[in-house]
Structure formats: structure tokens, C-alpha cells
Measured scan of single mutants.
Amino acid sequence: MEVRTIKVFTTVDNINLHTQVVDMSMTYGQQFGPTYLDGADVTKIKPHNSHEGKTFYVLPNDDTLRVEAFEYYHTTDPSFLGRYMSALNHTKKWKYPQVNGLTSIKWADNNCYLATALLTLQQIELKFNPPALQDAYYRARAGEAANFCALILAYCNKTVGELGDVRETMSYLFQHANLDSCKRVLNVVCKTCGQQQTTLKGVEAVMYMGTLSYEQFKKGVQIPCTCGKQATKYLVQQESPFVMMSAPPAQYELKHGTFTCASEYTGNYQCGHYKHITSKETLYCIDGALLTKSSEYKGPITDVFYKENSYTTTIK
């Protein structure tokens, strides 16, 4: 009895394709271990004539594949690729409408935090270190965002349907971005203890939790000093293409032309909904596939993004 075979390709990165001759009487799992086709788990399936010449994702289970996976995804987590594939199996079914010149995501599976993050990423200057993220990001900007969303979920250790947080998501993504040249110098002034300067680099240099107003941050924000008295913390120097200011959701007025974009969060910790506000020729609110415009805006804002380049204080 002759062994019926077909020729397929296996890959971990969709760049390096490895030619395989597979036995049609055995499952993919018996031949390769966990195997995925377009995100779908085909591990328990036997090869079919229609699979001839198709590319299958496999887990990096030998040295060659491990090197290829690390170079593309910059992670050695053995569960990463499987999590990416199972997320992709959902995100490829989502709709990605162009809204006001940006790629958004039609609401499904509690994905409003991903839509808000995706919209924000198209408006701030950011370059990702893992080629996987950078490639998928370019495709997302062009309207094909399924891979990018699935990668975000995998890097953030999230599953489809789980509630997510924009600030946490951005923080994970910033860790995989090139923020080497970003720098922030802060000064804390206390009447009792004097003053202390701190220099922050990388992710810490672009994120701040405690106030939404970048102007206020430049002037000074009140913080408790270690001595128990009130101290003032203010920005001395900022070198970065953008800054992200966050605070627990509270009524906040966004003035046209003073910011790049913002995240609105309605609801409580267990259950809520994100919308995205962007400042173009007027203010726009993007909620999944829905767009509304207004000249002014007041609502429960939790993150505001500002364009920056270089700032030095005039406070002496």
C-alpha cells in the first residue's frame, strides 16, 4: 500500500517557510505537534488534498525554529505562539472599519479597549522592536488589523473576551517599542525636605499616572512627601515624541487643539466601556464603527496623549 502524501510549508514567522512532505494517514499533531492554519487549530486533523502548498504555523520545537521565533517575536515564552494563534482565530472574524481616516474595530468580545489602543497607536510616533509587531502594525494602518490585535493580546497575556485596560495595554506595548531616546527629568520640591531631581528613561519617561493635564504637570502637581507634608512635583525636561497622561476616570474637559487623542471610560472596574476622542479640525468621538463630532467635550476621561518633541522648564 502506497503512502499518500502532500507537500506543505511549516513556519513560526510566515517569513521562513520549511518544506514538509506530510503523510495523509496521520494527523498534523502526530507529525508536527500543535499546528495552526489561519489561526485555526488543526492539530487533530489529517492532511487533505486542499492543504497542498498551504502554510501551517507550528510551535518552535527545534533550534532553527526557536531562533526564527525569537528573532521575529522577541520572546522565548513557549506558550506565546499558541496564544497568538488562538487569538487570531477570533480577531480574523472582527470587522476593521476605516473611521475618520483611522483603522478602528467594530465592537465584539469586549474589544473596546483594543480599538482605543489601536486608534491611539496610529496617532503617536512609535516604532516597535519585534519585527512581528512592526509588520502587523503597518498592515493594521492599511486596514488589516487582525494579526496586530492578536499579537497585542498575546504580548499582554490576554484572551479574547476578557476586559482590558488601555493604560495597561499601552504599557505592555511600550515595553516592546523603541523608547531608548526618551528621557524625563522631574523635580520634587518640599518646604521641609528641599528639592530632589529624578531622571527617568524609556517607558517611565512617557507615562504618568495622577493627572490628565500635561500643562498642569509642567506647572506642578501636589504629591505627598515622605515627611508627610505636601510637596510639588513638576516637569523639568521632556525628550520624547509623545507623552501619555493618565488618571482614574473623572469628568474632564478636553479643549480642541490642546491634545492629540484621549480615552474615555464609562462604567466601573468590573464592567465598563471605552471610547476614543481625537482632536482634528474639530473633536471626534470614535466608538467602534461609530463616529460623532463636537466642538467641545466633557466626560469621564482616563488617558490623554500629547505630541511632544523637546521641553525644558522655565521655572527657576
Score class of each variant (00 low, 15 high):
L118A: 03
A108N: 06
S279G: 09
Y214V: 10
R141S: 10
L88S: 04
D13F: 05
E253G: 08
L173A: 02
T76C: 15
Q197H: 06
S240A: 06
G194M: 03
S240L: 00
T19L: 12
L283K: 00
G202K: 04
S263Q: 03
L163P: 14
A177S: 09
Y214W: 09
A87C: 09
C149I: 09
K46E: 13
F70V: 11
G257H: 07
K255G: 07
G257K: 05
L235W: 00
E168G: 09
C182D: 02
S213A: 05
L291V: 15
T64L: 11
E162C: 02
A142I: 12
K307V: 14
H90E: 11
S294D: 09
T312Q: 12
Q134K: 12
S171H: 15
Y214Q: 03
C156W: 00
M85P: 04
Q238Y: 01
L133R: 03
V58R: 07
V203R: 13
T76G: 14
T35R: 06
L151Q: 02
K255S: 09
Y274M: 02
Y113I: 01
N309H: 12
E281T: 06
G33Y: 06
A289R: 05
S263R: 01
W94D: 06
V188H: 10
K201V: 12
T43S: 13
M24Q: 13
T75V: 10
N61Q: 10
L59M: 14
Y96D: 03
L291M: 11
C182T: 02
A142D: 14
C193S: 03
K191N: 13
Q30W: 09
Y297H: 07
G257L: 05
Y208V: 12
K293Y: 08
L291S: 15
R66G: 10
L179D: 04
G210K: 01
R184M: 01
K201G: 08
G267F: 07
D13N: 14
A115R: 02
G220W: 01
L212S: 03
H256W: 15
A154K: 00
S25H: 10
T258Y: 07
T278C: 13
H276P: 01
K54F: 13
A40S: 13
G220H: 01
K158C: 01
L88M: 07
V206D: 02
K307S: 14
L37E: 14
G29A: 08
Q216L: 07
K46V: 14
H90D: 08
Q238I: 00
T278Q: 09
K7I: 10
N178M: 07
R66D: 08
I45Y: 12
C271N: 07
H273I: 03
K307E: 09
D63P: 08
F305H: 00
Y208I: 11
Q237I: 09
Y28M: 06
L121D: 03
N187V: 12
A115V: 05
V188A: 06
D77T: 05
V12E: 07
S171C: 15
S171W: 15
G267S: 12
T19H: 13
Y252G: 02
G194D: 02
D77W: 03
Q123C: 09
P300N: 14
C149Q: 05
I124P: 02
E264S: 09
H74V: 04
K95M: 11
Q98D: 10
H276C: 10
K219Q: 13
G164S: 04
Y96H: 05
L133N: 01
Y284I: 15
T116G: 07
F148Q: 01
F242W: 09
Q20A: 14
P130K: 04
K229L: 12
Q20R: 12
Y172E: 07
L65M: 10
Y28E: 00
C190F: 03
L81P: 08
T314P: 09
K183T: 14
F259S: 01
Y138I: 14
T75S: 14
L291A: 13
T64E: 15
K229N: 15
G288A: 04
R4P: 14
K158N: 03
Y274A: 06
Q230L: 14
Q98M: 14
G101D: 07
Y269D: 15
T312M: 14
N89I: 14
L153Y: 15
T27I: 12
Y28G: 03
L291Y: 14
G299I: 02
H48I: 15
A108S: 10
E264R: 01
K44M: 12
Q134P: 04
V188S: 07
V221G: 01
A145E: 04
G220S: 05
V206I: 10
M85I: 10
S86Q: 15
I15E: 08
R4F: 11
L121T: 11
P34I: 08
V67G: 13
Y234H: 07
A150M: 02
K106Q: 12
P34M: 10
L153Q: 02
Y172R: 12
D62S: 15
G272V: 01
K255H: 11
K46P: 12
L81M: 11
T76A: 15
G39T: 14
L212I: 08
T232W: 11
F242I: 00
C193E: 04
N187L: 12
W107R: 06
A142N: 14
K275E: 03
Y214L: 13
G210F: 03
T64P: 09
V189T: 11
Y234P: 00
Y306R: 00
L126Q: 01
D135E: 13
G202C: 03
L179Q: 02
M24E: 11
A115E: 03
N111T: 03
F32Q: 09
V22S: 08
N268K: 09
C149Y: 05
A247K: 03
H51A: 07
S294Q: 14
E125V: 05
V3P: 14
T282A: 14
G267I: 07
S104A: 10
R167E: 03
F242S: 00
Q196A: 11
D62Y: 06
F305K: 02
Q30S: 14
P224A: 13
F56I: 09
Q196T: 13
K191I: 10
N147C: 11
Q238L: 01
V58T: 10
H256N: 09
Y138R: 14
T43Q: 14
N100Y: 07
M245K: 00
S294I: 15
R83Y: 06
R83M: 08
S181C: 12
F80A: 03
L37S: 12
S79T: 15
C156E: 03
T260R: 05
P131M: 04
A177H: 01
C193N: 06
W107L: 04
V166Q: 04
L173N: 01
R139G: 09
V203W: 14
Q122K: 02
G228D: 01
Q196K: 13
F128S: 03
T282D: 13
V3R: 14
T192S: 14
T91C: 09
M244P: 01
T103Y: 12
L291T: 15
S181G: 12
T260A: 12
Q237F: 12
D23P: 10
T10Y: 13
Q238K: 01
D62C: 14
Y36D: 05
S25G: 11
A69F: 11
V8H: 05
L37K: 11
L179A: 04
A247F: 01
K218L: 05
T11P: 05
I124C: 04
V166H: 06
F9C: 11
R167N: 05
N49E: 13
N268W: 08
C261M: 03
Q216V: 07
S240V: 01
S294P: 11
C182R: 04
G82E: 14
Y311C: 00
A250S: 12
K255V: 15
T278R: 07
F128A: 01
T292L: 09
S79N: 10
V22R: 04
C156Y: 03
